[in-house]
């Protein structure tokens, strides 16, 4: 049964990805629709940047900060669950849960006085904010492993490295993955608001539309970023299920 479900086509993923690509490509040609939406303005298609450029730089921001956050977050989570870093475990886990109550917009805004406008403050605030769910889930995943399993691995004569790579990480993988997913989905949304601090993202058409009272721009940005978020979510849904069936065995 498991093999059948893994072989199944990821319908939601393919559908949302195709839609995202199609809409990004064809959006500049939807003059009719957007004229109907915004009859009083001449320019109805956002043209300061191409939609592909915006999609690309949005993805670049989210994925680069997400990758950095995942690596740092998993590293930090693993360190505080080793003997060498266990002193820091209470502080780090409190920080990871309390930090998530901070509104993402506030974190984004606070980066500006320290780092100025542009890609850099957006990257660092997404990195910081994205760290929290990854750290939290890494700690939870490692702590969720039954002590008997760890003892068995030790009794088999595994070195600490072998225990980490062959026992702990594979067993905690799905929980860690869930943390990475939360982190990326939040960051797709926060990156959109990153337009207000000068990062070039799919939020640009939305903000430009809000400032110039151009509903057509708003819809173009919103449509693309919504599709992007749904695509990413279905990608993780698919990966999560693959990981789950792999962990179940064959």
């Amino acid at each position: 049964m498991t093999t059948a479900s893994t072989r199944q086509w990821p319908v939601a993923l393919l559908l949302s990805l195709t839609l995202l690509l199609l809409v990004t490509l064809s959006l500049p040609h939807w003059h009719g629709l957007f004229h109907w939406l915004q009859p009083d303005s001449k320019q109805v298609i956002y043209n300061r940047d191409g939609f592909f450029t915006l999609l690309g730089s949005h993805l670049l921001l989210v994925l680069s900060s997400g990758l950095a956050a995942s690596l740092t977050g998993i590293g930090l989570g693993l360190w505080v669950t080793r003997d060498s870093g266990r002193d820091f475990l209470p502080l780090v886990s409190t920080l990871a849960s309390v930090g998530q109550t901070f509104p993402p917009v506030a974190v984004l805004a606070l980066a500006v006085p320290a780092l100025g406008f542009g890609f850099k403050p957006a990257f660092f605030s997404l990195l910081l904010y994205g760290l929290l769910p990854v750290v939290r889930n890494t700690i939870a995943g490692i702590q969720g492993i039954a002590p008997a399993v760890q003892e068995a691995a030790q009794a088999m004569g595994m070195t600490p490295w072998q225990q980490l790579w062959q026992v702990e990480l594979p067993m905690a993988a799905s929980v860690i993955m869930a943390g990475v997913r939360t982190s990326l989905i939040i960051n797709v949304a926060t990156a959109t608001i990153g337009s207000t601090i000068g990062a070039r993202t799919l939020g640009d058409p939305i903000i430009a539309g809000l400032i110039n009272f151009n509903l057509a721009y708003v819809v173009q940005g919103a449509l693309l970023v919504g599709l992007l978020a749904i695509s990413l979510d279905s990608l993780f849904d698919y990966l999560g299920r693959r990981l789950y069936s792999a962990a179940e065995g064959h």
Binding site: T192, L215, G226, A229, I230
Partner: peptide, 20 residues
């Protein structure tokens, strides 16, 4: 779940159309 996935700024923007 789907609703939760859509970025806030996008949802605010998309709601402007029917409301206007």
């Amino acid at each position: 779940n789907l609703l939760q996935t859509i970025p806030s700024l996008a949802l605010f923007g998309l709601l402007m159309v029917p409301l206007s």
